[in-house]
Amino acid sequence: MAGVTSPDGADGKVADAVVGHWVDRLAPRGLRPYLRLARIDRPIGWWLLLLPCWWSAALAALAGHKPFPDPAHLLLFLIGAIAMRGAGSTYNDIADRDLDAQVERTRSRPLPSGQVKTRSAAIFLVMQALVGLAVLLQFNATAIWVGMASLLPVAIYPFMKRVMSMPQAVLGLAFSWGALMGWVAAFGTLGAPALALYVGAFAWIVGYDTIYAVQDIEDDEIAGIRSSARLFGRGLKPAIGLCYAISAVAIATAAALAGAGPVGFVGVALFATHLGWQVFRLKPGDGRGALLLFRSNRDAGLILFAGLSADALWQAPF
């Protein structure tokens, strides 16, 4: 697992970015702050936004008796996830630039460190959003409207850490939206499997983002930033375990409703096992370990996607 850079930001790098990323080695120096603003040097974010889309596309393949998820949809979701994660991160950093300056892990980000001006960040935000819109317009009308509705939780999320004790719930509403998109892109309507998957993705996101928030508990208390990690306190591990249990049950329900067979449920079981392993390994005082566990959710999500996709291929009529 790759490490992280030093937290001082003296080299222009961001504290929790992947060491040796191509952004730091190959990108033109003038573009690096913008790529960091879009979190290109921290790809885990777009992976976690993308995976519910891919899960939903795999469920749609199962329900539609297709041998695999629509490749064009998978590619569009990939492009859209990278663009919209970048836009969301830029928006979040504009809203949080004063708070970020008070937290060790975030004060090296491009805006609080002065590498990018707020006006330039706003222009960059619009450019990324336009890419996301271009992707969304490739889908059917219902999918376009469903996708547009995701902007509400995205818009309010940065401000929730100031007013509610569990802002991770709002992030869950936004980041799990892809669980609806794969299904509606395939069928032009929402269905029970997609709704159950949305619940499962929501609980998964609240769980993993609580692990992520473990890194900042002390600084968040000083800055007055609220988080589920602070809310759960000594009950942190049981609370994350409960989130992950709800996620596994809801996703298993979604798989059953979509007609999954044994191969799909093996994927669900391996996904659930990975989540249990995360809870077992979590140490509330270990910020670096929490970051590595948070990042491991990409692997958990890919395991689930592989299981559902393999089941679609196994069951497909040839």
Rank of each mutant, 00 (worst) to 15 (best):
R36I: 13
A72T: 15
R32S: 06
A129D: 08
M127L: 13
G114C: 06
A101V: 10
P43Q: 02
L74R: 15
A95M: 04
L26F: 15
D41A: 15
T90N: 05
P52Q: 00
G64R: 04
S120E: 10
H21G: 14
P110S: 10
G80L: 02
A101P: 07
P43I: 03
L37P: 11
R25W: 12
R42C: 14
H21Y: 15
R42Y: 14
A83L: 01
G88Q: 03
T106G: 11
F124L: 01
R109K: 10
W22N: 08
L99E: 05
L35C: 12
H73M: 00
H65E: 15
I94S: 13
W54H: 04
L78Q: 08
W54L: 04
I123N: 09
V116F: 12
R119W: 15
K117G: 11
S56W: 08
L130R: 03
V23Y: 10
D98A: 06
A57R: 08
R107M: 04
Y91H: 08
R32Q: 14
E104I: 02
R39T: 15
A81F: 04
F77Y: 00
G86T: 00
Y91W: 05
L31R: 10
D98G: 04
L31G: 09
G30T: 14
L111V: 09
A63G: 08
A60H: 00
K66R: 14
P33Y: 15
R85G: 05
Q128F: 08
G80Q: 01
P43K: 02
A129C: 01
G30R: 14
A57W: 07
Y91K: 06
M84P: 01
A17L: 13
G45P: 12
L37M: 08
W22H: 08
L62I: 10
Q102P: 11
K117H: 11
A101Y: 08
H73I: 03
E104Q: 11
I44C: 12
G88S: 07
K66A: 13
G20L: 14
S108M: 04
N92G: 01
P52W: 08
R25S: 14
G64W: 02
V23C: 15
P43V: 15
L51H: 07
P33I: 15
P33E: 12
V103G: 09
A95E: 02
R97Q: 03
G88R: 05
C53P: 09
A129S: 05
R36W: 13
I79P: 00
V103N: 12
L62M: 04
I123D: 11
A122W: 12
A72W: 10
A17F: 11
R105T: 05
R29A: 12
S120I: 01
V116P: 05
A57E: 01
L50D: 02
R105M: 03
I82H: 11
D41G: 15
D70P: 09
P112Y: 05
Y34P: 01
G114N: 09
W54P: 00
I82L: 02
